[in-house]
């Protein structure tokens, strides 16, 4: 094919006859989205790049947008987050994502404590904590957000104090209320990501269903005795909690932490993994636990991974969902963890 001569930013360029501006961009490996182009002194709209054919001796001027923004961290923040920023996978940009992120931690208990501590310390810009309980003496064996001096105080107040002390740069929003079908959608709406640290099945199912309906990533976990389990739910990308456990277990079949006990440090192990998952989702680093249920056995100090698939017949995220409105199961007893067969948390 015959070639013609054009000038691009004052330099001669040979291109094929009847080549368009789009062809020229392709040849020069220029992203048209970040450039402005003049052809013979007239700016050409991006929508016309395909139809604008070049002629012999055409003069093309291409500039790239020159712009940017303020560095969003103070020197204090740079120092505070330096061990993150130095990681090539995170760097300043990842830390910026963390700063711009908002995470709702449901439950300020055993799991919620390490989750909230690490997310606050990591610099998650907006951290929501919801819990309607008061601090009880029996909580202090594992719920490290609270101290003996906090007994009988609302957990969210105690949590706010500790988290703000660790990181005064972040915004903490507290909800001293029980999550129910009337408030869950509105509460999760303003957050990017939800972390489940609840201690009962009704709330766990409510949260799963609400997150599927609102398309919110949910980091789900439970602990009981010497065991723990965790999975990450990203609606549309993998299974949800109901894909594995379609409905809550029959009353009395699964004991609660109150009934069966839990080794306190397990809340730390699993809660820290939840915080890790949340930070991975926020920064886009690594491979989240989507479609994988991670099961922890503290006695053996072993982790086992079970592959799980989205269930097309799942009543909430399946192909033909039957649950289209939120269901609130009765909290008749302190039901806790279901295993693969029969899963809690705290």
């Amino acid at each position: 094919m015959a070639k013609i001569n054009v000038k691009v930013n004052g330099r001669k360029e040979k291109i094929e006859e009847r080549a368009s501006l789009r062809d020229l961009f392709n040849k020069l490996e220029i992203n048209p989205e970040v450039a402005v182009t003049k052809l013979n002194d007239a700016i050409i709209d991006k929508d016309r790049y395909n139809e604008t054919l070049l002629k012999e001796n055409d003069e093309i001027e291409i500039i790239f947008f020159m712009g940017g923004g303020a560095f969003d961290f103070s020197e204090e923040e740079i120092e505070r987050y330096s061990r993150h920023i130095i990681l090539p996978e995170i760097s300043g940009q990842g830390q910026q994502k963390i700063k711009e992120a908002s995470v709702l931690v449901v439950g300020a208990g055993g799991l919620g404590s390490p989750v909230a501590y690490y997310l606050a310390a990591a610099g998650v810009g907006r951290l929501g904590i919801i819990d309607s309980d008061l601090v009880d003496l029996s909580n202090l064996q594992r719920q490290i957000l609270h101290t003996t001096a906090d007994l009988d105080r609302p957990k969210v107040e105690s949590a706010r104090e500790k988290l703000q002390a660790i990181n005064p740069n972040i915004e903490i929003i507290t909800y001293n209320q029980y999550l129910n079908k009337d408030n869950v959608l509105e509460i999760i709406e303003s957050f990017d990501l939800v972390v489940d640290g609840v201690d009962n099945f009704p709330t766990r199912y409510l949260l799963n269903d609400a997150c599927v309906m609102k398309n919110k990533p949910l980091v789900e976990a439970g602990i009981l005795r010497f065991d723990g389990q965790i999975m990450t739910i990203k609606p549309g990308e993998g299974p949800c909690y109901r894909c594995i456990f379609t409905r809550p277990p029959a009353e009395g079949t699964i004991p609660s932490c109150q009934e069966a006990g839990v080794l306190g440090a397990i809340a730390g192990t699993i809660g820290t993994l939840q915080a890790t998952e949340a930070l991975k989702i926020i920064t886009g680093v690594g491979k989240p636990l989507i479609g994988r249920l991670l099961i922890y056995d503290a006695k053996e100090l072993s982790f086992r991974e079970v592959e799980i698939r989205r269930n097309p017949d799942c009543p909430v995220c399946g192909d033909n969902p039957t649950i289209t409105e939120l269901i609130e199961y009765e909290l008749s007893c302190e039901l806790h963890q279901q295993t693969e067969e029969a899963g809690d948390n705290e």
């Binding site: 970040v34 450039a35 790239f64 947008f65 020159m66 712009g67 940017g68 923004g69 303020a70 560095f71 969003d72 961290f73 103070s74 020197e75 740079i78 300043g92 940009q93 910026q96």
Partner: peptide, 20 residues
């Protein structure tokens, strides 16, 4: 360009728009 209220380090937006 200037950062009137922040340190002299490239921001995420500065990096994203560094086309030259």
């Amino acid at each position: 360009h200037s950062h009137p209220h922040s340190p002299a380090r490239p921001s995420a937006k500065d990096i994203a728009m560094a086309h030259y």
